[in-house]
Design a protein around this nucleic acid. Structure first.
Length: 256
DNA sequence: ATGGTGGCGCGGCCA
């Protein structure tokens, strides 16, 4: 089972890149964030012509998540129970015997801002929900744009970013709360290097200078953790003309 | 350098 995540920063703009990528890589599942599309405008025909099915929860201008898949989605959820949130940030479904939860965690803007408080509250609700989901679904993948660089080695300049949004203590503590439920960071099962990033600011030629952060993640439940055969960052789409500011993470899970 | 770039949508917000 090959599962990938990609914050596309507008599916309307990035659709040709998405179609090219799935044709080349043939994933079983591709989780998308920041589709920025209302559901009535989702490019269903193009996705189906490529041999994929789609589920989606979108809104105009901001946010929006989707999952493309080879097989049909079952038991679809688009809201965290008990969280009254009009922002479209989660979509979850079962594919075969794997539960997939795709998240677009709030950015948080700046430490101490209203959006930062919203982010921490949102993560608390997510964590409680993931705990429930893990109990019900031992084979769970939680993936997406977490907007958190878990450790200093996930940041191009840890001192510059220290205590900034995406790197602050409370955000990293929230990430540890999630992994503490029994989820592994699949990328770190295989790669312990510094300077392995998934997002680079559009400004200041950040990609060319590799000034990035690792904020997109694929977390797996203990049962799947042992079945993970690879997890890699695919930087090729970030090199294209008119790229998203994020690139893909791809994990492969074998049978257990 | 308190900027810079990109998406949405056409002014200002968000990342």
């Amino acid at each position: 089972m090959k599962i990938a995540t990609w914050n596309v920063n507008s599916l309307r703009v990035r659709l040709p890149q998405v179609l090219d990528w799935i044709a080349a890589e043939q994933p079983d599942i591709l989780a998308l964030q920041e589709t920025k599309l209302e559901d009535k405008n989702f490019p269903v025909a193009e996705i189906e012509a490529a041999g994929y099915q789609a589920i989606y929860s979108g809104q105009k201008t901001y946010n929006g998540v989707a999952i493309l898949s080879r097989t049909a989605a079952q038991d679809i959820v688009t809201d965290i129970p008990g969280l009254d949130d009009h922002q479209r940030r989660i979509i979850e479904a079962t594919y075969g015997d794997i539960r997939v939860l795709n998240v677009y965690v709030p950015n948080g803007e700046a430490v101490g801002s209203d959006k930062y408080a919203y982010k921490l509250g949102w993560l608390e609700k997510l964590t409680a929900y993931v705990k429930e989901q893990l109990a019900a679904h031992p084979r769970l993948v939680l993936l997406g744009d977490f907007n958190i660089a878990p450790e200093p080695r996930d940041v191009h300049d840890p001192q510059l970013w220290e205590n900034s949004v995406l790197c602050s203590g409370p955000e990293r503590a929230a990430f540890r709360q999630l992994t503490g439920l029994g989820l592994c960071d699949t990328f770190r099962l295989f790669n312990q290097e510094e300077s392995q990033f998934t997002w680079w600011d559009y400004r200041m030629a950040a990609f060319r200078r590799n000034m990035g952060l690792r904020i997109d993640h694929i977390l797996a439940s203990q049962e799947l953790c042992g079945a993970t055969t690879s997890c890699q960052i695919d930087k090729t789409p970030r090199k294209l003309e008119r790229p998203s500011d994020h690139t893909l993470v791809i994990a492969v899970f074998g049978s257990t």
